[in-house]
Amino acid sequence: MPFGTRLLLSAAIGSLIIFIALAPSGPRIYRLALNAQPHLPDLKLFAHLPLAIQLHILGALGAILLGAALMWLRKGRILHRAGGWTWVGLVALVAGSSMFIRGANGGGLSILHLLTGWTLITLPLAVLWAKRHQVQRHRRAMMGLFYGGFVINLAFAFIPGRTMWQLFFG
C-alpha cells in the first residue's frame, strides 16, 4: 500500500477513534466550536501555564513551521541539513516535555504518551538512516513524524475546550 494511502487511512481511523472517544462531550464541543472567536494567543493564559506545557507548545509550533518549510526545501543541501538538525532538536523538546504533561489522565501517562515513545525511537533512527544515505527510510520516518506527530496531533490539540483552543479561541 502506498505511503500516502496508509497516511490517509491512519488519519481516518484516528479521527474515528477520537469521534467515538469524544461522543459523550459532543454537544458541549459542538457548542464551543459554533461560538468560536478566533484571536491572537492569550498571552496571560500562556504565562500561567506550567513550564513543560509552554515548552511543549513553543517547540511544537516551531516544529510545525520549520517542518513545513523543510518539506519544500531542496533535500540534501546545507540549508536542509541545518534546518533538519534544528527540527530534530525541536521534536526532541516536544517529546521530552510531553513526559511532564500528565493532567489529562489524573497524573499518569495517557495514550498520547505512546506517540512520545514512538517519536523517541523513530527520531534517532531517521537521523541514522540519513547519515547512512538510506533516503527512502529517512523520508518515510520524518514524514511520519511530521504528519503523524504534529499535523494530526494539531487537530487534537485544537479540540474545543483544550488548552490550545483556549489560547486562540476561548
Rank of each mutant, 00 (worst) to 15 (best):
H80W: 03
T119V: 08
T116G: 07
L115I: 13
A126Y: 09
L128E: 10
G106H: 06
A92I: 05
L79G: 12
H80M: 03
G107R: 04
A63D: 02
I101P: 01
N105T: 09
R102Y: 06
G89Q: 04
A92K: 00
G83L: 06
G117Y: 03
G106L: 10
L120P: 02
A82H: 04
A82V: 15
G117H: 01
R102I: 04
L114G: 11
I78R: 14
H80C: 07
K131W: 13
Q134N: 06
G84Q: 09
S110E: 02
R81T: 12
I101D: 02
L115S: 13
A95D: 01
G62S: 12
R102E: 01
K75M: 04
W87H: 03
A126P: 00
R132Y: 02
T86S: 10
V94M: 06
L61Y: 08
G76Y: 10
V91E: 06
R81L: 12
G62H: 01
L120N: 08
K131V: 02
L112M: 15
I64A: 06
I64F: 09
L70W: 09
A126W: 04
A63M: 05
G107M: 05
L115W: 13
A68T: 15
N105D: 11
P124R: 06
I101K: 05
T119Y: 10
T86R: 04
N105G: 04
W129V: 09
L70Q: 13
L128V: 12
A60D: 06
M99D: 03
L109C: 04
V88P: 03
G103T: 15
V94P: 00
L90F: 00
I64W: 03
A126R: 02
L65K: 07
G107E: 06
A63H: 05
K131N: 10
L79V: 14
R77G: 12
S110Q: 05
L125R: 15
G117Q: 09
W129A: 13
A60V: 05
P124D: 08
L65Q: 08
A130I: 06
F100A: 11
L90E: 02
L93A: 04
K131T: 07
S97P: 00
T119H: 08
L79C: 09
R77I: 11
I101W: 07
A130R: 10
R74C: 10
L114F: 15
G89W: 01
A60G: 11
L73Q: 13
A69P: 02
A95L: 02
W72A: 15
H113Y: 13
W85A: 03
S98P: 04
N105Y: 13
R132V: 00
R74L: 13
G117F: 05
L114I: 06
V94K: 00
L123E: 02
R77M: 13
L73P: 03
V135L: 12
L61E: 10
T116E: 01
R132D: 08
L66D: 03
A60Q: 05
A69Q: 14
A92M: 00
L61N: 06
A69F: 13
S110D: 08
I111R: 15
R74P: 11
A92E: 08
H80A: 02
V135A: 07
L66C: 04
I121Y: 14
K75D: 05
R77P: 01
R74A: 14
G89C: 03
L123K: 11
